[in-house]
């Protein structure tokens, strides 16, 4: 994504600045600009080259009402921003990711917050051999921790409350690297810890994936995850 641009992308950046692109093409460029610094650099270079030609247009005196209108909007903006500080952020549902996609990156993030999490669970009576921090995919905030005191028994511990919409439930899943499909570990109550035996599963292993998806209140109708991932993480040997 950060490699040198090809000619087509240089021209695309130029066309974006000129303004010849359709709305869909403009939106596609704007989406790429957020994570492609080379493309952004090309766009900015074109902006600098062309900006002198804004002088080809005649200045037009704005109507007297325009500044007062801007000022009112500015004040309204300011009011709404100071109000929003006291309002708790609305819970936003994550959109469904293709099922296992992104899990590797999330595993990395989980590893990064491990240090923090470890200090919180150090009062546990037994030292877990494995640990999983389950993060919300979009906010990357930790929602649950899985502790395994041995390879057959795990404990899922909530780190906060979580609202489940009416008619829906959280279903807990796991999948080791070489498994073909995830296996359901059953429904879990938001905010309630749960202890599970994995007797019918192979021993827990490093990098094993765990996640909670939002399903119908009777569980996934297919036996495989169907709803959006709410929390996801990978087991780390500790």
């Amino acid at each position: 994504m950060t490699g040198p641009l090809d000619q087509d992308d240089y021209a695309l950046a130029g066309e974006y600045v000129l303004g010849t692109l359709s709305l869909a093409q403009r939106k596609a460029v704007e989406a790429r600009l957020k994570h492609e610094p080379e493309l952004l650099r090309a766009v900015m270079a074109w902006e600098e080259r062309f900006v002198p030609y804004t002088a080809l247009t005649q200045p037009v005196r704005p109507s007297d009402s325009l500044w007062p209108r801007i000022e009112r909007s500015l004040n309204a903006l300011h009011d709404s921003q100071s109000a929003s500080v006291t309002t708790p952020p609305r819970r936003r549902w994550v959109t469904q990711l293709p099922f296992w996609q992104g899990a590797a990156g999330i595993g990395m993030a989980a590893a990064l917050v491990m240090g923090v999490m470890l200090s919180q669970v150090s009062t546990a009576p037994t030292t877990p051999e494995y640990m999983v921090v389950l993060l919300a995919p979009q906010s990357q905030s930790a929602g649950w921790v899985v502790q395994a005191s041995n390879q057959q028994q795990i404990e899922l511990i909530p780190l906060g409350t979580f609202e489940v919409p009416d008619g829906k439930a959280l279903e807990f899943w796991t999948k080791a690297d070489e498994w073909q499909a995830p296996v359901s570990l059953g429904l879990v109550e938001p905010g309630q810890p749960i202890r599970l035996r994995l007797d019918e599963l192979p021993p827990l292993q490093d990098n094993q994936l765990f996640e909670l998806t939002l399903e119908d209140d009777t569980g996934s109708p297919t036996g495989l995850p169907t709803g959006p991932i709410q929390f996801i993480g990978r087991a780390v040997e500790i």
């Binding site: 804004t54 247009t57 200045p59 037009v60 704005p62 325009l66 801007i70 909007s73 500015l74």
Partner: peptide
């Protein structure tokens, strides 16, 4: 302001819309 409105008006060719856009651009 006048130069911005000139540039925007030349593109959108509608005075009311141009002022709306300068308003939005300022915010």
């Amino acid at each position: 302001g006048a130069r911005l409105l000139g540039v925007v008006l030349r593109i959108v060719k509608d005075r009311g819309m141009a002022e709306d856009i300068v308003h939005d651009a300022c915010l």
